[in-house]
Design a protein around this nucleic acid. Structure first.
Lengths: 352, 352
DNA sequence: GAATGCTCTGTAATCGTTTACATAACTGTA
DNA sequence: TACAGTTATGTAAACGATTACAGAGCATTC
């Protein structure tokens, strides 16, 4: 017996269910059952089986299991940029939930590259994954094979135009942006600029709408020239700062659609010798970890990122397990909060 | 024919190699060969096969392929904390390389949790992955089944005590820390504190050694009470700041073993009313994106993170492909650079 | 004592590929 | 013409699990 085990080890081949069955003196069916439904096998047999498993050091082969069971217990999480710190917490939370529920997670990033898109497409169509968590705003060309609805897909923080019938978890971007703008107005600002997110992004558009609606509600005319383009990056925040500095009739507050842009802008402003919030107020959006560490600490909207990730993952799990077959296009909006810190103050007294 | 295809679609079953073979009027072997080694199948046949594949929309089943080929084309990347911004760039680079080379990546985080460790252990032993990229400093208990050397493992930025015979890619932490300390001394500092990394971490220890060696070389006595504990987090940097503020005989410079600790410290110092670098200098380590955006911008050591990730991934790929069978324990040290920014200045003039 | 039901286990088909081996159809050469 | 050497294809056996079905053994019921 032990000679056999060592022979296995030498061949580099790992133990199979047959080896376990042989050692325990039962059939492979019994071993399989002992693992999947222990209550169905008699106590003495079960003990023998587990002893054999332990002795041989057996782990079921995932490929064989997937093949037979037609399910891989794997999930694909597709992000727009793996390196962005906004996603950190969400990634963590989803990984947490999925691992707990017995799923592995494959993280991916298409970057608009057709070859990468094809790669992830294969993963879906080849049955490597049982479900997809879509963080990426843009869908691989032709909408992926995903659309065939072969496996469940859940959207997180990113509405996807051609996938409007899928469950989506996000905050109310319109409301949050409205709230922040209202707050700025409340502090006395009337000329407020907005550094927007990338234009094809529906969430960015919602934030612009919230900003604009708040202005209108306060009787302030929406001025399109105060909406500056951005793409959520530091660099685009810095570009917005340049724009600001070049102006003669400067706004008294700048509301960025992401913390990274706010910080990029802040840094450029400070480098130009301005003092925040004395000379100009800056507000962010997202509530990434750094927003609290910056000096001045950023007044921003805190997205409950962990909760978003958790809920989306749980939704996906339920659907992969067919527990939740309601295919109603549920759009779940998690409440988020405005946190007042140091980067926003009253507008500077106007020199007359 | 098309009735058949739609029948398939209706059953929800995806097309198999048999369907392709039937449609193209060849055997499954030929289809398989057309895919794996096109030059082995005659031109007209090949065209027919590809036409059939296209028409049916066939993608090989990954589980079946893995089972038969005994390899999954998947890699497990184990990190200490998925959400840490130090890893972002490295994650990106490894994902980039591995995807390009036709591998999928599963990112994981054990968090010292036995259940999670077991989960990842299964992944390795069950053949879900062909190789492991180990970013985590600590190995799952008992050293994982990994140690059986069934599949290649490559270490990144983290020496693992019981895995000293594996290829490792990192910077020269001792040299980098020595260099930074030397720089601080060069700016006139003689009383320099060090916020250390977590104590079991070999890299953290190397940095302490570099710091200490530089002091000694400059004829400054190493003072153990100036080495403060930390764990690479903002919070531990802030705790170090408290310690500093409570001192009567304060050091003139603080050298943190990570940028996050430096920033946490900086923020606490500034909140206490100190001005950096006028009142005290602060240096970081790592060169994360935020280090350049902070105010003052952080003088730090820039780790070539993308290169580290790329090299490690390429090394792993070679070994998974058996192209590089040299099992020599190669420790590759990538050079890194000190970048001078704003957070370090000369020591303040001493009041006498 | 036969019929019925229950619990436990085994037999063998199946999942969808890959690939060793066999075969067939050529080409070229002696 | 026969034989060897190519080249292109097919046949069928794996890979390692799960599971429908069947059967054995035993207790219960009429």
């Amino acid at each position: 017996m032990s000679r056999h085990a060592s022979a296995l080890a030498q061949k580099g081949r790992s133990a199979t269910i047959r080896d376990v069955a042989r050692r325990a003196g039962v059939s492979t069916a019994t071993v399989s059952r002992a693992l999947a439904a222990p209550e169905q096998v008699a106590e003495p047999t079960r003990t023998r089986v587990f002893a054999a498993i332990e002795a041989i050091g057996y782990t079921p082969n995932a490929a064989a299991r997937s093949l037979r069971a037609q399910s891989s217990k794997m999930v694909l999480a597709l992000l727009p940029g793996l390196g962005n710190s906004f996603w950190n917490v969400i990634i963590n939370a989803t990984e947490e939930v999925l691992t707990r529920e017995g799923y592995g997670v494959i993280f991916g990033d298409t970057r608009n590259d057709p070859r990468r898109e094809a790669h992830y497409d294969q993963l879906v169509r080849g049955g490597t994954v049982d479900g997809v968590l879509l963080f990426a705003g843009r869908l691989p060309r032709e909408g992926f094979a995903l659309l065939n609805e072969t496996i469940p897909i859940t959207l997180v923080c990113n509405e996807v135009p051609n996938l409007s019938n899928l469950p989506l978890f996000e905050i109310d971007n319109h409301e949050a942006a409205r709230q922040m703008t209202e707050y700025l107005i409340g502090r006395g600002h009337r000329r407020i600029a907005h550094i927007a997110g990338p234009s094809p992004n529906p969430e960015a558009a919602e934030r612009i709408r919230g900003y604009s609606d708040a202005l209108t509600a306060a009787g302030i005319a929406f001025d399109e020239s105060l909406v500056w383009p951005g793409n959520f990056s530091f660099a685009s925040g810095a570009r917005a700062a340049e724009r600001y500095l070049a102006m003669t009739d400067r706004p008294t507050a700048i509301f960025a659609a992401s913390d990274e842009m706010a910080i990029g802008c802040l840094k450029a402003l400070k480098d130009a010798g301005l003092s925040i919030p004395k000379d100009v107020s800056v507000a962010g959006f997202d509530g990434i970890d750094y927003s609290a560490m910056y000096d001045p600490a950023l007044t921003t909207i805190i997205q409950p990122r962990a909760e978003l990730g958790r809920l989306a993952a749980e939704n996906l799990v339920r659907r992969m397990r067919r527990e939740d077959m309601s295919d109603a296009p549920t759009r779940t909006r998690i409440p988020c909060s405005l946190v007042v810190r140091e980067s926003v103050g009253p507008p500077p007294a106007r020199p007359r």
